[in-house]
Simulated scan of single mutants.
Amino acid sequence: MKRLAVLAAAFVAALVTAPAAQAEKIRVGYWSSGVSLGFGAVLQSGKFLEAQGLEPEFVTFPDVNAPTKALAAGAIDFAIGAPAAASFSVAVDGLPLSIVLATQAAELDFVVPEDSPIQSLGDLKGKKVGGSPAGSATAAITSAILAANYGIKPGEYEAVPGADPRLAQFLVQKDIDAAALRTVTIALLKDAKLRKIGSFREEWAKITKQDAPPVLGVGLMRNDWLKANPDAAARVVAAMRKAYEFGKADKEAVAKALVAAANMKEDDARAYAALWDGIYAVRLEPADIASLKTEFEVFKSVGAVKGELPDSALVTAPYEASKSIK
């Protein structure tokens, strides 16, 4: 009888402790055609989330706004680079989602064909200007720059949406007059004859009086998952931080991940990897929160967002807790 009692007690203890030993599941989404691709490929191939005791399911999307929509629908739990403008909008609308990280800097340049008569951004009134689709941070930042620095309102130029490769093709074919392209894209367009007429960083500094690029993408998390898994949320951020540091230290490994994930040519992958430090971030310090709030107000001034951004939309707990995770 004593032996049976001991076995029964052990069985009950196993039942009680078993759930704690199980890895928390998390569905992670990212845009597979934009800047998110590089970070997503490294995060996934390096198994950084698994190293933190998590069980991730990665979901890729061909559209820049799709991860945000998937979060709102409960189809994923975390987007590693949701557009800042769309994230602001869902926060204002009261959707149960939280910004837990600033993850992508808007390192883009405005370019025109080499032989274009356009000499500055002030010449873009009435022109066709390519960029990411409406709802993206790129589109909102472009509108803010043209309106605030050159007096060109959104209705005074034609916004042509598209992914970077398509926009570059439009430029070469002279189907559009100018485009806002990511620096990583421009680095890959070795044969395209394009001329830079401005940069997001320089133009944004004129608006904010700060020498820092605007935030392009954020880490957006579903509130239900965050509340149910506060410890796991901190480990998600820790995994993101470790992936970022890995990318800074080993550009060749980043290039290999891109070759494998995107079937990218080795030279192109190395050019992409070389820009890692400038296009990615994993932060949510007080300065980042202030920057995001300023960005919201700038977007609001040109009608890209409406309402008021609630303080509750910016949740620092996972980031702060991640600092103690080795």
Rank of each mutant, 00 (worst) to 15 (best):
V111A: 11
S143C: 05
A178G: 04
A290L: 12
F296W: 10
V218L: 09
L121K: 07
A72K: 08
Y150E: 11
G155H: 12
S322K: 12
G278I: 08
S116K: 03
P56N: 03
D63G: 00
Q210D: 06
R195N: 12
V172C: 00
K127N: 11
L15E: 06
F110S: 08
E107Q: 15
A21W: 15
S33V: 14
P117W: 09
I279Y: 01
G126I: 02
I76G: 03
D115L: 07
A18N: 12
E266T: 13
K251N: 10
A102G: 10
N223R: 13
V59S: 01
L43V: 01
L54P: 09
P213H: 09
A148Q: 14
A106P: 02
S33W: 06
L71H: 02
V282G: 00
S87C: 04
K127Y: 10
E266P: 02
P161I: 06
I118G: 06
G217T: 01
Y272S: 07
N65L: 13
T294N: 13
A238R: 08
L226P: 00
I207T: 05
F11Q: 10
R235D: 07
Q119E: 15
T185Q: 11
P19C: 13
F39A: 05
E285S: 04
A239W: 01
D211W: 01
E156P: 12
A243L: 05
T316E: 15
V6H: 10
L54W: 06
F39D: 09
A205H: 03
L314M: 09
V236H: 09
L314W: 04
L292C: 03
E202R: 08
Y30P: 02
A86C: 04
F48W: 08
A51T: 04
G40Y: 05
V35A: 13
D231S: 15
A262T: 08
Q22K: 14
E57L: 14
V16D: 05
P117D: 15
F88M: 11
G135F: 07
T294E: 01
A102R: 11
F58Q: 02
L146G: 09
F88Q: 06
V259C: 06
G162Y: 04
F246T: 05
F39K: 03
A168C: 04
V305P: 03
A79I: 04
K174A: 09
F11M: 15
G303V: 06
I325A: 06
E266M: 13
V172L: 09
V112A: 07
D288T: 12
L188V: 07
S291R: 15
G278P: 01
A105V: 11
E158T: 12
G278E: 12
M221T: 08
V298M: 13
A144Y: 12
K2C: 00
A86D: 12
A243D: 02
E114I: 11
A5Y: 09
K69Y: 08
N149W: 04
L37F: 02
I76S: 08
A51L: 05
K153F: 10
Q210L: 01
I176A: 13
P19G: 14
L97I: 11
A233G: 04
